[in-house]
């Protein structure tokens, strides 16, 4: 360890201070959500809760774990996240690899074909009709297939592959490896930081998505996801008053779920995916060492 110069000391002090401020600013909302979720729901209405609950209770969580559909929805959410991330990352990387190859005949066509998809959409009805005609409604595959590849991710991984020396592939070819082997043996492992990042993106996207459940699987209780169950509670709280304008006589029947309960639901639904990140982080470091090996 070298001795630090004065400039270094100033830089580090400034840097650490900045990071600490950032941490405080970004940790606050989460602590706030946590505190409200642990607070008595009637008391919460008064507002003013910061990072400590005023009337501590676990009741909001107890209420959530009594939800009937919870267990199935957690299983489906975990399954779609794992399977979706695995298939998604392999497919994404494969497309990225193919369009990174300068010698590939259809390279430009495939690239443009993908890039355009980022900016066009047929709209709700055509997409629904497609999924229905493919018999994907009320089918687990609807969580995997339609969102298999995102062009954004493809381009990001390709830019990473572009940074690798092409000689690696050429020398492997001379050793008799075909393109498939090159992809799995050389490209995929060398891209670990990018693969880890994009996997995280896909996983978070899979975990958080609920709209596909709502559109395609909402009538099938066996395929419901955790985020969908959460959205049902969150959205019904947001819109219930609106309906009440149009039906004041049924007010008593429409109990809105209290804010504390919604916050508890938020915590339950985000915690699993939040703790994934520290595990992904280690691949940024690993990528570094692998990167050192490659040349």
């Amino acid at each position: 360890m070298k001795r630090m110069s004065a400039a270094d000391i100033i830089f580090h002090t400034f840097n650490y201070l900045l990071m600490i401020i950032l941490m405080i600013a970004t940790l606050y909302p989460f602590l706030n959500v946590l505190a409200i979720s642990l607070n008595n729901s009637i008391d919460t209405v008064k507002g003013g809760i910061t990072i400590f609950p005023r009337e501590f209770t676990f009741l909001n969580y107890a209420e959530i774990f009594k939800t009937k559909a919870l267990l199935t929805s957690v299983i489906i959410s975990v399954l779609r996240t794992i399977i979706g991330t695995f298939t998604g990352i392999i497919s994404t990387a494969m497309v990225a690899f193919v369009i990174s190859r300068h010698d590939f005949i259809a390279r430009k066509a495939v690239t443009i074909l993908y890039i355009i998809t980022m900016y066009v959409s047929g709209g709700l009805i055509p997409e629904y009709m497609l999924i229905r005609n493919l018999r994907l409604t009320n089918n687990f595959l609807v969580y995997i297939l339609p969102g298999l590849i995102s062009a954004f991710n493809v381009i990001v991984i390709r830019s990473f592959i572009d940074g690798l020396p092409f000689e690696l592939q050429e020398s492997a070819k001379l050793d008799g490896a075909n393109d498939l082997t090159i992809f799995f043996r050389i490209i995929f492992p060398l891209c670990t930081p990018a693969i880890a990042t994009i996997s995280l993106f896909i996983a978070v996207g899979q975990w958080n998505s609920w709209f596909d459940t709502y559109l395609y699987c909402s009538s099938n209780k066996k395929l419901t996801t955790l985020q969908f169950e959460l959205q049902k509670i969150l959205l019904s709280a947001q819109s219930s008053g609106q309906q009440d304008i149009y039906g004041s006589s049924d007010l008593a029947q429409k109990r809105v779920s209290p804010e504390s309960l919604r916050m508890a639901m938020t915590v339950v639904a985000t915690m699993p995916i939040v703790i994934v990140y520290p595990f992904v982080q280690k691949y940024f470091i690993k990528g570094l060492t692998l990167g050192a090996v490659k040349t």
Partner: peptide
């Protein structure tokens, strides 16, 4: 799922016949 979503769903039902 929400008040807007109900209308959407009815449109999808109409479009698809389900």
């Amino acid at each position: 799922v929400s008040s807007d979503a109900g209308k959407q769903k009815l449109s999808l039902m109409a479009a698809s016949g389900d």
